[in-house]
Write a protein that binds this DNA or RNA. Structure first.
Length: 448
RNA sequence: GCCCCCAUCGUCUAGUGGCCCAGGAUGCCAGGUUCUCAGCCUGGAGACAGGGGUUCAAAUCCCCUUGGGGGUACCA
């Protein structure tokens, strides 16, 4: 393959945010270009005046950047190339290959005259695909508003911009014979076509808003790492051919070929994405992870300036193997950042509203108060000593303490948690639980 | 309706005629580690849509059926 002449494009229409299907198409084009050391260009197909918006364009550009899909040319905007399309359309009219037409509603357009015959092309992924051109109607090239239609603008631009490989969703397979007819009418050199499978929602139906998060920006806002999303998306419709799953971007570029792309549509799977994001989090250097968490926390409205030096790093270290997304981290660690913690009612019932818990926690309170250096080692020593002295298993003590301090029956290690929370808050919450939560019936949420 | 594409564990996939009574990952289940959960380790259940061919031999090739997806716009 002549790698030096590869030129591909991603050509979204700015009628909505970049969804994961579009992102995957962009990614495959990008990987293909980088693998072949070719050119990747971005073209905005804003020929639908009603539905195109600047916000959508901006969201698409932001999403591409966030994913790390940098383009070498563009973005070109089709709305700025109107004279070009007009000229090409008229050329076809003058050659008798297209004609002016007025529809029932009185709109005037230029329509392409389809020739009968068989259209066959060799798809890079599907192999030979054949259409009977006589079944395809004469289609509009230039709309009444002077804007080109998709099929027309696409061909004119791809030819004009020197696109060598058209990699796009297989929902475009049936557009291909029309486009080939146009290439032939103009005498343009035909590019290669590679139609990649669609990404379906988790239930196997076409991706839509009711599937929850479908846009790249939503995944960004929910605290996923861009490389994890890229890695996950790369594996939807493509595989390196071995058992490798977690791959760096350079690795993906090196291994990416269209030959290894699938024909079968793939269902999106959030659970596996979560797992993958967790893998990336685990493998991210702690300083970088802390910085990312910091950014996310600030956006979420947490006053990070008030946190002691190094505190967030300790938090990140403690939670690194425990969270899947930054949003998840925020959920898990919310009790650190508030004076009003939420108590899980079931946890309170199960671990605090029991006989002798008040006494036990009073002992714990005393032991913790007497711990001079409030760090995890000393806290552990104090409490281990206590359990030995009063003869109870450590878990009998840990759970009530956990609920009292975090409000939940699940948390990271209790000693590390107390150390991070600090002496003052820990003791305050413990005292509150002793006086207000143990062996009483109401009280689910209050100030501690 | 007509045209086109597709079909391996729930999901993502490996598999291009014998190496496959089908491998990996995720999820699920069980056990281990343990202050809970997560993580980690070990083990387990789990698929070639159905039917015909071709062949000494088929998940792999052909046909039909069924199922899914896409198109059939002066949307892209």
């Amino acid at each position: 393959m002549l790698s030096s002449h590869v030129k591909v494009r991603f050509a979204p229409s700015p009628t909505g945010y970049l969804h994961i299907g579009g992102a995957r198409t962009a990614l495959f084009n990008w990987l293909f270009a980088r693998h072949h050391k070719g050119v990747f260009l971005l073209r905005i197909e804003d020929t639908d005046q009603q539905r195109s918006t600047d916000d959508a364009t901006q969201a698409i550009l932001d999403s591409m950047k966030w994913l790390g899909l940098d383009w070498d040319e563009g973005p070109y905007f089709q709305s700025k190339r109107l004279p070009i399309y007009k000229e090409y359309a008229e050329r076809l009219v003058s050659q008798g290959k297209a004609f002016h037409d007025t529809d029932a509603e009185g709109r005037k357009a230029i329509r392409f005259k389809m020739q009968d015959g068989v259209t066959e092309f060799n798809d890079l992924i599907h192999g030979a695909i054949t259409f009977d051109a006589s079944l395809i109607e004469d289609f509009v090239l230039l709309k009444a508003d002077g804007f080109p239609t998709y099929n027309f603008a696409c061909v004119v631009d791809d030819a004009d911009m020197g696109i060598t490989h058209i990699i796009r969703g297989d929902d475009h397979i049936s557009n291909t014979p029309k486009q080939i007819a146009l290439y032939q009418a103009f005498g343009f050199k035909l590019p290669e076509f590679g139609h990649i499978p669609m990404i379906l929602g988790e239930d196997g139906s076409r991706l839509s808003k009711r599937h929850g998060a479908t846009s790249v920006t939503e995944y960004r806002d929910r605290g996923y790492m861009p490389h994890a999303l890229v890695n996950f998306l790369a594996l939807l419709g493509w595989s390196p051919g071995n058992d490798l799953e977690i791959m760096s971007v350079p690795e993906m570029i090196e291994k990416f070929t269209l030959k290894r792309a699938n024909k079968t549509s793939a269902q999106f799977n959030n659970t596996k994405l979560d797992w993958m994001n967790g893998q990336y989090i685990k493998n991210t250097p702690i300083e970088q992870l802390t910085a990312e968490a910091w950014k996310y926390f600030e956006k979420a409205g947490i006053d990070t300036k008030r946190l002691p030096e190094g505190w967030l790093l300790s938090l990140a270290r403690l939670y690194q193997e425990r969270f899947k997304t930054f949003h998840d981290l925020l959920n898990q660690t919310g009790f650190f950042f508030t004076d009003t913690i939420e108590y899980d009612a079931a946890a309170v019932d199960k671990f605090l509203k029991k006989e002798r818990i008040t006494d036990l926690l009073k002992e714990v309170h005393a032991a913790l108060s007497a711990t001079v250096i409030f760090d995890k080692n000393n806290l552990e020593n104090s409490l281990r000593d206590l359990t030995e002295k009063i003869g109870v298993g450590f878990s009998k003590l840990a759970q009530p303490l956990r609920v009292a301090v975090t409000g939940k029956s699940v948390s990271a290690g209790i000693f590390e948690t107390m150390e991070l929370l600090g002496r003052e808050k820990t003791l305050k919450r413990l005292a509150y639980a002793i006086h207000n939560l143990c062996e009483k019936t109401e009280t689910v949420k209050s100030v501690a």
